[in-house]
Amino acid sequence: MPRQGKGRYTAYWLLAPGAIWLGLFFVIPFYSLVSASLFDPNGSVLTGYDVTYHFANFGNAIKNYYPELLRSLWYAGLATLVCLVIGYVLAYAIAFKAGRWRNLLLVLVIAPFFTSFLLRTLSWKLILSDHGFVVDTLQKVHILGSDGRLLNTWFAVVAGIVYNFLPFMVLPLYASLEKIDGRLIEAAGDLYANPFKAFFKVTWPLSLPGVVAGTLLTFIPAAGDFINAQLLGGPGQRMVGNTIQSLFTSTQDYAAAGALSVILMALIVGLVMVYIRRAGTEELV
């Protein structure tokens, strides 16, 4: 219900503080990041940096860190897919099968996430640790070799990402499933569609906005995450987030770190654009 208020400028006054904050601390920093990515790589914290439009930073960053970049996209993509499958089951159960327990179940979905992100991840480290219950059991049934382990493998990292970003998938899925009129699914049944056909012809297409929103909200933070790789993975599981973090904090190579951040952002924006176009839900944003 947008309307022209009595003061034409009321909207601007209301928006001003938020706009200034986001402008100063989100938009401008992004510019500084892009300019940092063009720093002369020979600068240092002591001598200062010059923006020398050193575009070679990008080439060097890709050349040096492409395994981490690819690994990040691959881990994040796989984790998003797993999240989609198990998140869909949970959201579907809450939306259609939970009856009056709906709200309680929704609270339960969010509740674990009030315990610190890091503590939850450390908790997984304990669960998957060597000589822990899970590893011992898997070794007994010979799924893992007798010296096999879960920690420091890609499995542990992806499992951690799946766990930590699952609510970002479940909540949008639930929001769009809940809106579906149950009578449509019944109608499909009346018209002799079996449950599978009814699901793929009616429920799934109607839930697509939730699927798109959920996969984006899961994939984006997952691709930039480094906590899971740090705590659950080994040196072979480093993701691009780990590299950016250490370039900024320990190596203090701001030029390379800036270039790598810009590349990551560009990759994500590019993938997201293609994906949204494919999914045909451009009105999402």
Binding site: L15, G18, A19, L22, F25, F26, V27, I28, P29, F30, S32, L33, S35, A36, L216, L217, I220, P221, A223, G224, D225, F226, G241, I244, Q245, F248, Y254, A257, G258, S261, L264, M265, I268, V272, V285
Partner: peptide, 26 residues
């Protein structure tokens, strides 16, 4: 305005954090 508001939710944290750091350093 709506787009600018959506962007921080769509940027990876590491990128936002590092760009703020770049600003604070300068």
């Amino acid at each position: 305005a709506n787009t600018v508001i959506f962007l921080p939710m769509a940027s990876p944290e590491i990128v936002m954090g590092s760009s703020l750091l770049a600003l604070f350093i300068s």
